[in-house]
Amino acid sequence: MRFNRMDPLHRTDPIYATAFIIPTLAVIGFIAFWPLGQTFYNSLFKFALMYPQSKVFVGLSNYGKLFQDSRFLNDLWNTVRFTVWSVGIETVFGLLVALMLNKKFKLRGLVRAAVLIPWAIPTVVSSQMWRWMYNDNYGIVNNLLLSLHIIKTPIVWLGFPSTAMPAIISVDIWKTTPFMILLILAGLQMIPEELYEAARIDGANVWQRFWSITFPMIRPTLGIALIFRTLDAMRVFDVVYVMTKGAANTETLSVYNQWTLFTRGFIAPYFGYGSAMSVMIFIFISVFAFFYVKMMKIKLD
């Protein structure tokens, strides 16, 4: 649809447009780009937070050092593992539940509201709650498995690499599937009922209707949801920090980053190194986001 340039309702006025957009750009610049620029600037130096006066310019060498740091590489792998599993499972669960909740049934409103509860609890609180549920003596998870005779001795979920990461991923899935449901449900409700009717008349079965109507129609929504969740998962901190503090090989990049900036970079000259790590996390996330936007063919403008 093209509007007539002379139509007073839809006339474009570059001066007004600029005037209205400047505050927005200023706010975004101030809260997003300025700290990012500051972090990048810091990443070019070698210094400790405690002695900001003795900054040494080291160029991009902090970035080179990152890739020789085995702890960084290991944590990168942990972060990717965490992201792929949690986002993958959340998407599948979210889609299934959203499809169910899109059907009409009694008490639908109540169920839709109830589904949101895990997402509404602050992560620190729910992580602490799950830490208790995973406890080897008094935790309900072990209690349940023991009384069902699935296990003979309690499992120390958060103590060992083989169970700690899956346990943490489960908490994240429990917590953020509702977010997926919410977004996908919104997408589903935008699909006009007539499309399904037409398909039914043409004799399309459930499977065909899903792949030729539902999926293409919710793809943009799904894409946005995936971007949100992946960005969140790539910088996961709270669940891991509360549940294991990175023990049992569950440390993610953000946890290591926090340690480098605070514990290490306070006195030892590692604040620049920590900043470089923050910038790298930002770059990784950007790459993911770019990839999604391309893959899901989302139009951003």
Binding site: N135, D136, N137, P154, V156, L158, G159, A247
Partner: peptide, 8 residues
Amino acid sequence: ISPVGVAT
């Protein structure tokens, strides 16, 4: 004598 859980 110590449960495996002491590690947590």
